[in-house]
């Protein structure tokens, strides 16, 4: 499960300076790598919607940033995504999915299943990756589409990429 290194490599190649996040177990190693990188500012958020607004501010100041979050956090962002669409700010979000595959917690199902339709309802371009071999080029593509193509996009990291989580049952 080393695909997180491919995301980190893509962030570095795209000159990402701010990585803002609400932690998720699926992003833990990537977050640690960003924290250890002196050329990246890492920002733990109280709520994911702050991250959307922060990335708008970063872009106003001439920096590129990305948002890392779990699928449940997408629901917290919806109104703030309107800021990105109205002002045509670039957006690159990396979303670790719950509620898709071998999900042990039924409370994760509604937002997990709702993630893609609500993003698309806000005109965010959505891609899903479920094969570790594709993470590198998919990550590069979502970053290119944001900062070169000036679009709002999210890459959903399928739950198949994550270790199966249980509470011991």
């Amino acid at each position: 499960m080393e695909w997180w290194k491919d995301i980190y490599g893509a962030l570095k190649a795209a000159d990402i300076k701010q990585v803002v996040f609400v932690p998720d177990a699926g992003h833990a190693k990537l977050i640690d790598a960003c924290i250890a990188d002196n050329d990246i500012r890492t920002v733990p958020l109280a709520s994911e919607e702050e991250g959307i607004a922060m990335l708008a501010g970063a872009w106003l100041g001439g920096q590129r940033g990305v948002l890392l979050m779990q699928s449940s956090g997408v629901g917290n962002c919806i109104n703030m995504i309107g800021l990105m669409r109205t002002c045509r700010f670039p957006l690159a979000a990396f979303v670790t999915m719950r509620g898709q595959w071998h999900e042990f917690n039924p409370w994760q199902m509604p937002m997990g299943q709702g993630t893609e339709p609500v993003l698309e309802a806000m005109d965010v371009l959505v891609d899903t990756v479920d094969d570790p071999a594709d993470v590198a080029r998919q990550s590069e593509a979502v970053l290119h589409r944001a900062f070169i193509g000036m679009q709002a996009g999210a890459l959903l990291l399928h739950q198949r990429l994550m270790p199966v989580k249980t509470f011991g049952d």
């Binding site: 958020l45 702050e50 708008a56 501010g57 970063a58 100041g61 703030m80």
Partner: peptide, 22 residues
Amino acid sequence: IFPLWGAMGGAIPLGLGLAMAR
């Protein structure tokens, strides 16, 4: 001036991202 017309709750984090960039 970057004047928000919406994005309620967003002014402070937007300012934070800008302050960190500049």
